[in-house]
C-alpha cells in the first residue's frame, strides 16, 4: 500500500542549522495495516508524514502509494490518495466556512471542481447522518462556521473529512489528539478507531502516548534519528508494555530514553 524507500531529507543543508530529519528511512505498509508511530522529539515522525504528503520534495529516495510512484507529485495531487489530520486542530478545517462547506470540500478531494453549486441537498442529508455518528451535537449546527467549534469538535470534523467522506488509500494522523484535553482526546481516538475499522483503512498514526500506541493498531514502529529502529506487530505487539518498549528503545538507540512528555503521558 505504502512503500518508502531510502528516503533522505536534510533541512537547511550547509548551514549551522542543518538537520537531517530523514536518514535512510525504509517503511512498507500492507493493505489494512494500522501502524502507530512513536519516537522522541526530532526523530523524524512528522517529517515522514510530510514527506508522504509532499509538503516538500525529498533529497533522495522514493515513495509509492498503492503502486503509484508519487515521489515527484505535487502535494495537491497526492491528496487524492490521502486523508490527513493534523496535530493543530486549527489546521485541518477552514474556520471561516460552514461545517457543511468544509465537508463538501473534502467530498470533492481529488475530483475536478466544477461550477456546479458547492453543496447539493442530498449531500446535506448525508453529512447530517455522518455528524450524528460523532455524537457531538454537530448535526444541528451544519451552517455554523467551523471557527466556532472547540478543538475536539474540529478534530472530529477533520476526521470525517479525512476518512469518512471518501475512503483514502492511506490515513495519516499526526498526533491528532495531542492538543486536546484527556477526555476529548479519548473520545476522538474512539471515533478514529471506529472510522478506521468500518472503512478498513490503512493508517499511520503518530502519537506521543505509549499506552495509546500499544492499545491501538496492529503494528507499532519506533523512529530514531530519521529512520525506523523498532518494528513490532501481531502477537508481539499485543504483549508490549510501556516498560518493555522503553527497554527496547534504550537497547536500540544505545542511550537512555528520556523524553518527559512520553513518559508522563
Amino acid at each position: 500500500m505504502l512503500v518508502i524507500e531510502n528516503a533522505y531529507k536534510t533541512f537547511n543543508p550547509g548551514t549551522v542549522n542543518a538537520k537531517t530529519a530523514l536518514n535512510g528511512l525504509n517503511l512498507t505498509l500492507r493493505e489494512g495495516d494500522f501502524v502507530t508511530v512513536i519516537g522522541g522529539n526530532g526523530a523524524g515522525k512528522s517529517t515522514m508524514l510530510n514527506a508522504i504528503c509532499g509538503t516538500w520534495p525529498l533529497d533522495s529516495g522514493r515513495i509509492l502509494i498503492d503502486g503509484d510512484d508519487v515521489t515527484n507529485m505535487p502535494e495537491y495531487q497526492r491528496a487524492k490518495y490521502l486523508g490527513r489530520v493534523f496535530q493543530d486542530p486549527m489546521m485541518g478545517t477552514a474556520a471561516d466556512m460552514e461545517i457543511a462547506e468544509n465537508l463538501a470540500l473534502a467530498k470533492r478531494r481529488g475530483k475536478h471542481r466544477t461550477l456546479k453549486w458547492g453543496i447539493s441537498k442530498e449531500e446535506r442529508i448525508e453529512y447530517k447522518n455522518l455528524l450524528k455518528i460523532l455524537d457531538l451535537g454537530l448535526e444541528d449546527r451544519m451552517s455554523s462556521k467551523v471557527g466556532l467549534l472547540s478543538g475536539g469538535q474540529r478534530q472530529a470534523v477533520t476526521l470525517l473529512m479525512a476518512a469518512s467522506l471518501q475512503s483514502p488509500k492511506l490515513l495519516l494522523l499526526d498526533e491528532h489528539t495531542a492538543a486536546l484535553d484527556p477526555k476529548t482526546a479519548a473520545k476522538v481516538l474512539d471515533i478514529t478507531d471506529k472510522i478506521v475499522e468500518s472503512n478498513h483503512l490503512t493508517t499511520l498514526m503518530i502519537t506521543h502516548n505509549m499506552r495509546d500506541a500499544i492499545a491501538h493498531g496492529n503494528r507499532l514502529i519506533m523512529m530514531h534519528d530519521g529512520h525506523v529502529v523498532i518494528d513490532v506487530s501481531g502477537e508481539e505487539k499485543k504483549n508490549l508494555t510501556v516498560e518493555s518498549l522503553i527497554e527496547m528503545f534504550n537497547t536500540v538507540s544505545g542511550r537512555e530514553f528520556s523524553n518527559d512528555r512520553t513518559l508522563l503521558s
Binding site: Y76, R84, M91, A95, M97, N102, R108, T114, L115, W117
Partner: peptide, 22 residues
Amino acid sequence: TEFGCSLRSTGCNLAMSRAQGI
C-alpha cells in the same frame, strides 16, 4: 460553486486546502 468554495478555502487555510486536493 465547487470551484468558488475552493477559492474561499485557499484564503482561509492553505495547508488544509492542499490536503483536500486543491
